[in-house]
Amino acid sequence: MNIDGVNTGIVLDHIKAGKSMQIYELLGLDKINNCVAIIQNADSEKYGKKDIIKIDQIIDLDFDVLGYVDSNITVNIVKDGRLERKHHMELPQTLKNVVKCKNPRCITSVEQGIVHTFRLVDRENKVYRCAYCDAEHRVK
């Protein structure tokens, strides 16, 4: 299957196979007007299979979301058919409104309009803690 390359826009590459729709939703790509292509189960030398998202526009991306969902993703910024920048993701130090705390004793379980915030406490084991109640959240 062939999908044209991006002339000016963003290519999210090396997405773990099956995770592209989650990223599509978390980044709010359904709300932009330009063309977005999702490629699932593309062949990958590194991982066997991978997903790719191509966006026909340069937009502000939430790198924290990308780093949280899959820190292996690479973000390629393409301008006039040339690769302008390449970003490698990593687990962000802070997550804001990406995940919600599951502790029923946490204030975030009842208070409206709160910024759900988690802080990275153990990068090696991918452990975050809620900034309000210290409940643990492990990245799967």
């Binding site: 004793r105 204030i107 208070e111 309000y132």
Partner: peptide, 10 residues
């Protein structure tokens, strides 16, 4: 004082 954890942060 509040029964929910983190309420004073809010």
């Amino acid at each position: 004082r509040h029964p929910k954890e983190g309420a004073p942060i809010v």
